[in-house]
């Protein structure tokens, strides 16, 4: 049903209680976007200079991936909850989390491609991180096509929840074994690397922007997800009429 939490005028205290994180997301992102363009970068020369010139993209590109992962995990959790009880509201949450995750995933690919072109010289390079991201996008696009090809709403919810769980587990398996299959050539992957954009090597000044930006993006993702869920719930009720 539609959300009728505020029947007669909005109470300021309930508003703060319910929506403080939306305000936090807004403040953090406004701070990160503005200060992200002014924060002094660490000195770099020689090999790192390509990276140096484009380093501010870190605040925007990485946030897309964190948010995408958070959304796909949300979608997975609500698929499981749907199967234990078959309540339509969990299906709605699951599909909208997948939609929001896809939005952030595609933005992540685009910001990453621009960055890749200027640092590595090509829009796409062979690398486990990039391949894993692409497979994640393929899985959720297939999920949406599967939903589109089933008419009956209950059947659609059930079958797509099963596919969502199955595919998500296989995606995790893929992300775990992929680094064993191919060496990372370009994308910073984690432990033991000296790449300046990895969180543990990150310059102190950049950290002041990076961490708030990450929290801000993830909260923004949940905000978008909540709005989309409400829109779909309204659509479902009007569809019934």
């Amino acid at each position: 049903m539609t959300n009728n939490k505020y029947p007669s005028g909005m109470n300021v205290r309930t508003f703060i209680k319910e929506s403080w994180w939306k305000a936090l997301s807004g403040i953090l992102l406004i701070y990160a976007v503005i200060y992200g363009f002014f924060v002094p970068l660490p000195e770099m020369s020689g090999m790192g200079s390509n990276l140096f010139n484009t380093m501010r993209n870190l605040f925007y590109h990485v946030g897309m991936w964190f948010t995408m992962l958070a959304m796909f995990i949300t979608s997975f959790v609500f698929s499981i909850r749907y199967l234990s009880g078959f309540r339509t509201k969990y299906d709605t949450r699951s599909v909208e989390a997948a939609n929001t995750g896809l939005l952030f995933g595609i933005l992540g690919i685009l910001t990453g491609m621009i960055w890749a072109k200027s640092t590595w010289g090509a829009f796409w390079v062979r690398d486990p991180k990039l391949d894993g991201a692409a497979v994640g996008i393929f899985i959720y696009l297939a999920y949406l096509i599967l939903r589109g090809s089933i008419e009956n709403l209950d059947k659609r919810a059930k079958v797509s929840a099963v596919y969502n769980i199955f595919a998500f587990v296989m995606l995790i398996v893929f992300l775990i074994i992929l680094p064993r299959m191919q060496k990372s050539l370009a994308h910073p992957a984690g432990k033991g690397e000296e790449n300046a954009v990895l969180p543990m090597n990150l310059d102190q000044n950049m950290r002041y922007v990076f961490y708030p930006a990450m929290v801000g993006w993830v909260l923004l993702g949940f905000w978008i997800w909540r709005i989309r869920v409400r829109i779909r719930e309204i659509e479902l009720t009007t569809y019934d009429l």
Partner: peptide, 20 residues
């Protein structure tokens, strides 16, 4: 098979899953 079945659906559903 629960969807309106066609060959391409089978392929697009299985290829990303079968990659690992």
């Amino acid at each position: 098979s629960r969807a309106s079945h066609n060959f391409s659906l089978m392929a697009i559903l299985s290829f990303p899953i079968i990659l690992p």
